[in-house]
Design a protein around this nucleic acid. Structure first.
Length: 641
DNA sequence: CTTCTCACG
DNA sequence: ACGTACGTGAGAAGT
């Protein structure tokens, strides 16, 4: 047995590392004691990296611990060691893990402990930390990292285990990314830190629980978030099939396209299209005027500005308002192709599991407002105006892709929270909200432009923006925007009233917005106007999460693939896809405090991209299911027109 | 590491 | 009294 004494918060603690069968007997005795006392045991894993689903990934150690004692099981050295860890994971009824989805998926895939078995017994301290304070360090919060939480609440002198190990890796000629795979399993600091992490995890749990009680965050919300976390972990485990041949072709096409347009840019002296200083200098040299500046004072040359110079509208169609600037055009096209190639093409090409599936990370509780985020690859941010990227993602063989989204969910939630009579009436009557708004303000003869303005003002309300920004965003004259906002406030008095109230209540509560779900959202003192947005965005997120749980209760969890803010992407076998989509839509639809939240189910073909194809010919040419069902392609074209 | 840009809802 | 656009993840370039 290896034994490392250490100090945490001025108290002696001990890290034990079994080396053989006899040592494991002592471990088992310790585990039995923990079972009989009913203590919550902290658990953690050490692995070769973060790419849980990669074919080269390995589990190296499994740790268990309480406030004073940790056991580090180097499971990679023997089947017996792994079996002891598996036994402990099965027998321990109450565990705590920091960032549980990671370890749950590691143990599910690499230790044969099903997520469904272990998940319900785990309290995730990262979830508790988010419910206490969702702010990241850069936003003035403690953050959600175990290290930062412990420095704040347990022991400011506790070592930065991750950071220190990185330094050790560097000193041994390894990097942060390969060090966890290469460092020797008996490296003493590695083992000590592996043990300290569970001791710290064990100590942070009661601190966070007390804070939640103090703040008045309900146990119901804690349970809700744990269920959502587990359900998202099952989606992460399922992953999504990638059409690898298609992706390789896509990457190569985008590479060619980026090359052609960067060669065009080179003719104007721009050697790197992503170097904004080069681009702005070259444009000035061509006689263009650049007036907008970035926060740091540099000349701004973003997409909107380049589209103007290239005489293109936001759909990249010629506007014929000026002579197109060829450099602006080349930079735009080269940058887009380059970004799509690296951020989406290569991200989807690499990092797949052995079956060619992509397992994006679903962070079920991430943003300031509790919104989810998705990374590696960022599947929530794939281009939606064009089907070519999403075409790479496929339903399982014999299945079709389904998407069910909420209609104007944030506006509807705002109407409900604000109890805005007119708006609620429009929703109840099934009216298009932006048409209704335009008609209220400008009368039955309202134009498309009026509708767009009304919609923009609505967004401004949701975001807490003002006339200046809206005018800048839409390009509409300031006076016109101001008039529209005034008219909006006149026809929807409840919205302004609610906005004032939620800001007043947030100030009174110590700069905290409380959502209907009982979530506390700290507010920046100098951005109190964001209160409305926080309440609306966070509530919309809670609505989708409740819907996910309702779908699970209805036995539909196996069909889910990915949540996307106000939408669920799913799949179902061809023969029942239409029916499953309707059923998902029916269950997701709900009454939210007197306002109906409607859903819009859509069924595509074999690829996610098929949902974004507008013409039947494109569907039959580029999606295998539609190729075999051309009549359905024509029906889909009509439905999407 | 920061800045800028760009993809999404 | 007045006005404030919300939330993410990621790559490239430059310091």
């Amino acid at each position: 047995m290896k034994h490392f004494p250490h100090t945490v918060a001025g108290e002696a603690v001990s890290v034990q590392v079994p080396e053989d069968s006899r040592d494991l007997d002592a471990f088992r005795l310790w585990v039995r004691d923990r079972v009989s006392t009913g203590e919550i045991v902290a658990c953690d894993t050490e692995t070769t990296g973060l790419d849980t689903f990669s074919p080269t990934f390995r589990l190296r150690a499994v740790q268990f611990g309480t406030a004073y004692e940790a056991w580090v099981l180097p499971v990679e050295i023997s089947a017996e060691m792994l079996e002891a860890a598996r036994w402990a994971l099965r027998i321990l009824q109450r565990l705590t893990i920091h960032n549980a989805p990671y370890d749950l998926l590691v143990l599910d895939r690499h230790a044969g402990i099903p997520l469904e078995l272990l998940g319900p017994r785990v309290i995730d301290t990262r979830v508790l930390a988010h419910l206490c304070d969702p702010r990241q360090p850069q936003e003035g919060g403690v953050g959600l990292a175990l290290k930062a939480l412990c420095a704040e609440y347990v022991d400011p002198t506790a070592p930065d285990t991750q950071g220190d190990l990185t330094a050790i890796f560097n000193g041994m000629g390894m990097t942060k990314s390969n060090g966890f795979a290469k460092i020797h399993i008996w490296h003493e600091t590695y083992l000590l830190y592996a043990g300290l992490d569970v001791i710290l995890g064990s100590r942070i749990l009661p601190v966070l629980q007390r804070r939640l009680t103090k703040y008045g965050v309900s146990g119901r919300l804690v349970d809700f978030e744990h269920r959502v976390m587990r359900l998202c972990a099952t989606m992460e485990r399922r992953g999504m099939r990638v059409d690898q041949d298609y992706v390789r072709g896509l990457v190569s096409r985008l590479e060619d396209e980026a090359g052609i347009h960067s060669a065009r840019a080179l003719r104007y002296g721009v050697t790197s299209v992503n170097a904004t200083a080069q681009v702005s200098a070259a444009l000035l040299g061509m006689g263009e005027k650049l007036t907008q500046r970035t926060p740091s004072g540099a000349l701004k040359v973003d997409k909107a500005i380049l589209l103007d110079l290239a005489d293109l509208d936001d759909q990249w169609q010629p506007r014929e308002t000026r002579t197109p600037n060829p450099l602006a055009d080349a930079v735009l096209r080269s940058k887009r192709a380059g970004k799509w190639r690296t951020s989406y093409g290569i991200a989807l090409r690499d990092g797949l599991d052995s079956e060619g599936r992509s397992h994006c990370k679903i962070n079920s509780l991430q943003a300031r407002t509790a919104r989810m985020s998705i990374s590696n690859p960022p599947l929530q941010q794939l281009p939606s105006g064009d089907w070519t990227i999403r075409r790479a993602l496929m339903a399982d063989p014999g299945h079709r892709i389904i998407s069910v989204d909420y209609s104007a969910v944030e506006m509807r939630i705002l109407a409900s929270l604000a109890d805005e009579t007119q708006m609620k009436r429009a929703i109840a009557e099934g009216r298009d909200l932006h048409d209704f708004t335009a008609e209220l303000i400008w009368g039955p003869g309202f134009t498309k432009r009026h509708r767009k303005m009304g919609k923009g003002v609505g967004f401004g309300k949701v975001y807490g923006g003002g006339a200046t920004t809206l005018s800048r965003q839409t390009g509409a004259p300031l006076a016109e925007v101001q008039a529209a906002i005034a008219a909006y406030d006149r026809v929807y008095p409840g919205i302004k009233r609610y906005s004032r109230r939620v800001q007043r209540e947030a100030r009174a509560a110590g700069y905290v917005v409380w959502t209907p779900s009982g979530r506390r959202l700290p507010l920046d003192r100098d951005r109190v106007y964001a209160a409305t947005n926080y309440a609306v965005q966070s509530t919309a997120r809670d609505v989708l999460c409740q819907a996910l749980l309702d779908l699970e209760d209805a036995g539909l969890a196996d069909y889910m693939l990915l949540p996307v803010h106000d939408e669920l992407v799913a799949q179902a076998p061809e023969v029942e896809a239409e029916e499953i989509a309707r059923e998902i839509g029916r269950i997701m639809a709900m009454d939210f405090a007197g306002v109906q939240l409607d859903t819009d189910p859509d069924v595509g073909g074999a690829s996610w991209g098929s949902l974004y194809m507008k013409q039947a010919g494109v569907m039959t040419d580029h999606d295998s299911w539609y190729a075999a069902h051309p009549d359905a392609a024509h029906a889909a074209e009509l439905a999407r027109a």
